[in-house]
Amino acid sequence: MIEMRELRKDFTVRVKAGRLRREKRVLAAVDGVSLSIGAGEMVGYIGPNGAGKSTTLKMLTGVLSPSGGEVSVCGLRPVPQRTRLALRIGVVFGQRSQLWWDLPLGESFRLLRYVYRVPAAEHEARLRRCRDLLDLDEFMDTPVRQLSLGQRMRGELTAALLHGPEVLFLDEPTIGLDVVSKQAVRSFLGELGATGDVTLVLTTHDLADIERLCERLVVIDHGRVVHDGTIDDLHSRYGSRRSLVADLDTPLPPGFALPGATTASIEADGHRVTFTLESTTAGAAVAALVNAAPVRDLSVVEPEIEDVVARLYTDGRGVSGVP
């Protein structure tokens, strides 16, 4: 559905060099990305700020011309065949509205029916579904400029879907939303993805979006792919481990060691201990600990995707030497 081969985008920027002189410098925003995304896949496209995510999506949607490499979406080349491609994809740039500022939301949807040449019945059915799932009814008559961010974002999602796109590109669709709105958007996208009719590429800084929605995770940094696989792949690659957190009635005896685990931290004067489970099961570790010390409370903590991704991002910085 989406093919990128050695895709690149260079921006020429002028930087101050001395008091009056300005130097041209070439910034490789996307630096040779090769990816292949199949129909019906849901892909999380993440990376630190400035990694080149938005730039990639803009090349996939025909907004920006690539500086090099090849790209095709739905079998079309985005820039030369922009208008044909636009009929088959849906786009939400979280930071930028696709709606008409001065018109009521419902009116924007009506215009989109003409812009995308959608038969009335189809339009009606899709709109009905979005209105129900995203709770739009309350503000269908409100001018877009008066909508709150979360309301507008739900409107944007609807706008991107009314023509029944085969591929949906979402650039930070949950940015700035409250917990409830985020969940509404996520479960909406989850349902959409479950049908398998639409391919979804999503960028976000909220990794819960990814955990909830995306099987596949592509991480880029400085315009290059640094990881491509499932979330589990990422955990095993970085050796993420579960940990065991125990609250004790009396501090652990000095020099205590749990077989198959390392002691990660000791807090509260020895009353709270965290072990990292290296080569043991949670059951065995708990049994050994209960035998050795008076345990008041216990919890097993799954590895946080945030931590793994943070390690991935900081590694990237180490390699290229950029602070």
């Binding site: 025909g62 907004v63 208008t83 636009a86 786009v91 696709q98 812009v115 040449r117």
Partner: peptide, 13 residues
Amino acid sequence: NGTLDAVLVRPLA
């Protein structure tokens, strides 16, 4: 402002 993005993603010239 970069708002030409929104114009470019529509199926019109």
